[in-house]
């Protein structure tokens, strides 16, 4: 038996193909059905890909989530559909314009135009002991960002991280980059599972970890 999907995420059929779906207002032109479910495109969402690949994310639904690298809100909109209070941090102003639109349709999504490398700039807003830290930041030093943001995570919380090899070093072999990131993370986190997301996202590694 594969790992269970969180409550609020289901596999439903769109155009004859079984896909992940959540219930909420559509955001990016994804297929919807008459029951108010909308497809969660794993090709546009690293967290979606991690769920599609049956990684054990530890998500049950209803969690408090801190999401770093929310961009225009594609993935975070699905997270807010099944999770509890969801804090969405994004650094670039242009995508935040779209993210605000996504937040306006949801009661539990809080957009923050802040730099994930500088947690003190949002520690006065984001609550302590969140259940889940999702990271999808395209910056150099992704492990450092994860370590700096560990302070928000509950002791038994999960880090769900998508490492983009090309953001660390465009010239290096992705596998070498992944090894480096994982070994940097191990200073502060216990790695529970890793998987290449290549089926959906080239040169990305999905990591599930827990604070040490």
């Amino acid at each position: 038996m594969s790992n269970d999907l969180p409550a609020g995420v289901e596999r439903r059929t769109y155009d004859g193909r079984e896909r992940l779906a959540t219930q909420g207002e559509p955001v990016y032109g994804e297929p919807t059905d008459s029951d108010g479910w909308r497809a969660w495109d794993a090709g546009r969402s690293k967290l979606g890909a991690m769920l599609e690949l049956d990684m054990d994310t530890g998500l049950d639904g209803g969690e408090t989530v801190l999401y770093l690298g929310a961009a225009s809100g594609t993935t975070v909109s699905h997270v807010a559909d099944f999770a509890g209070p969801t804090y969405a941090v994004e650094f670039a102003p242009r995508p935040v314009r779209d993210l605000v639109g996504v937040a306006e349709d949801r009661d539990n999504l809080f957009p923050l135009l802040k730099d994930a490398r500088d947690p003190s700039s949002y520690a006065h807003v984001v609550e302590a002991d969140v259940d889940c830290l999702v990271m999808d930041v395209a910056t150099r030093g992704q492990a450092t960002v994860a370590i700096r943001n560990k302070q928000f995570l509950a002791d038994d919380g999960r880090l769900l991280m998508a490492v983009k090899a090309r953001s660390e070093d465009v010239t290096a072999e992705p596998d070498d980059v992944f090894d480096d990131v994982v070994s940097d993370l191990e200073a502060e986190y216990e790695i529970l599972e890793t998987a290449q997301l290549d089926r959906f996202h080239a040169d990305h590694l999905g990591i599930v970890a827990q604070p040490k």
Partner: peptide, 21 residues
Amino acid sequence: YYERLREATIEAASDEVAERE
């Protein structure tokens, strides 16, 4: 609390986006 937080974060983000953009 979450209602207030939502209002404040949405307003903060949209104001700042408008200014910076």
